[in-house]
Design a protein around this nucleic acid. Sequence first.
DNA 1: AAAAAAG
Length: 734
Amino acid sequence: MPNFNKPATGRSGKNFKSAPKGGSGARSEGHRGFRPDQGEAPKRRWSADDRAARTGDRNTGSSRGGRGDSRPDWTPREKPARGGRPENGDRNDRPSYGDRPQRSSELPSYGDRPERGGRPTSGDRNERPQRDSRPDRGGYGDRPQRDSRLERGGYAGRSERPSYGDRPDRGASAGRSERPSYNDRNNSGRTERPSYNDRNSSGRTERPSYNDRNSGGRSERPAYNDRGASAGRTERPSYNDRAQRTERPAYNDRPQRTERPAYNDRAQRTERPAYNDRAQRTERPSYNDRNAGGRSERPSYNDRAQRSEPRESAYYPARDGKSSHSQQEDVVLERLVAKVVTASEVEGKSFIDLGIGSNISRQLASMGAESPFPIQAATIPDVLAGKDVLGRGKTGSGKTIAFGAPLVERLMENNGGKDRQMGRKPRALILAPTRELAQQIDRTIQPIARSVGLFTTTIVGGVPQYKQVAALTRGVDVIIATPGRVEDLIEQGRLDLSQVKVTVLDEADHMCDLGFLEPVQRILRETSEGGQKLLFSATLDKGVATLVKEFLVDPAVHEVAGEDQASSTIDHKVLLIEQREKRAIIKQLAAGAGKTLVFTRTRAFAEEMAEFLSMGGTPATSLHGDLNQSRRTRNLQMLTSGKVNVLVATDVAARGIHVDDISLVIQADAPEEYKTYLHRSGRTGRAGKVGTVVTLINRNRRRKMDELLGRAEIDAESIDVAAGDAVIDKLAAL
DNA sequence: AAAAAAG
């Protein structure tokens, strides 16, 4: 790709990783945080008062979306109210400290979160500094499960959480919540469901690789014609031209795209299996069945499976019996050549100047984003122009709106009058690495989409799928998802991505890591060929080369200048400690009054530390993959709501998650990768607030830590300490 | 090591 300094040397990402540009942390021009020009990004854009006032507005105005109020066409026939909400199930077994007591009070009553406008959840904002300090914002937690459903307000069933009364006893699902940890699952005779590991290696057979599918029958893809002529869409390029780029083509052009294979028929598929079929399950409508229904030309997942096409096999290194864990070195990959934007360049520009419509601009303003942040000003025009974009913006710099606002704007302009059509296929997909992040993104994008009558839904695991399926059946425009559930629903024939014209990968570099890359590739291949692709991350580097090569066309690369430690409000410290004193020191650090986030390398240690701290008088809760989703959501919410001030988490909380006012980040286990360091530390110091990051290491690991800090381009003071030292108390959060 | 699917 033209945007790389060095042309790709091979097809697989491995090549890029093995050809790093030296591990030095030189702040040279080719390096990650290099910035030719100084310019400070304006932080804090609004005051707490503004925010409070804003909240009020939203509550009154957001229902305008139209759908929510009337919700005529979509009466949930298939699943009326019954909010199965299993989530509550685990409430009983909930281990962590404080949640129990307040429990009942923490769940807002249904009534108060209908419009989501009040948006207490702060979760999602992480990428957007703007909302950071909203005082009124409750946190994630208040609306744990509701993820996206809010708007659909009207419909009972949809709310993730039905009132206590109507909730039948989530019988079956209850069991789910207790899901054993990954480890347990592996050992405990749960034969019915292979653990992730098993699945990766052996169990895998049941799922054909997408490659096969590609080579399979994908011959031509139905044109986009039906899309409805985009009437006056002249001024703005449309989806289609993407190929030729220059100026945005209209949806209609799409047709030319003959080579697109495909999955076309899916489009016509009206008879999609009803939710009820589910019962018979096992025989879940396979692609074959569907094919039989007339769609013969399209290979079924199975067929595809058998078809062994060596082609692209390079993309599946792990499958070939190799350990999928080849310890990647923590190296700084070559930086992508980017167009650098400085804060001063965008000063005075408004979202409207950038091409965002007035409706969306108004919505953004009501959310606290009165004027665009640098990363937004840099990428919005290109996104609107239909170009593929790679965007790098520091943690909390507003990346979600940077891709979310223009994405919604484009969908609105190109809906060909088909908006709100029942059963319409999603036209945009946003993928995130964790469920919490996906839900957080939805909380930001949903209001924007609703402001122009478009709908969003989250497609993530850990929660029952029926509501997601019901939403898809009704028709949704934007999907915010995690990879696993998306693939699951595609296999079930309940999700069709063929009409997806815009795909966003948040935390894109992470989505290219082992374990994520392949699913992501398979999913991207299911989207409309030639569709626009947007890759964002605070640490975007050449690790995304594999995806760029296969899916992006002449991408524009943007980053913001002045986003390095010099402009940071975070203080970094490295404590050289005695291993045996680690717990005591963490306890001392966590004793402060401010919100503290502790990162551990393993789930077990996270759980152990949370318990240790709680037992020691510092209420703490945990967040990691061994918890069922409802507990994850609840525990995170406990921190955002202030029910506890300490959250001990694995790296599931390292990226993207936004919690207001975290004043101290403790790395109980030092990160292996400099990027992890940057993401973890990015949980504090948001919205211009000050924060401290303390990393605990053994003295003999000092050199290694220094190297990592060098790569991260962070200057941190190293201090020799012993449990009980006064220095530690000083670092404890205020 | 972690994360990501299972009415």
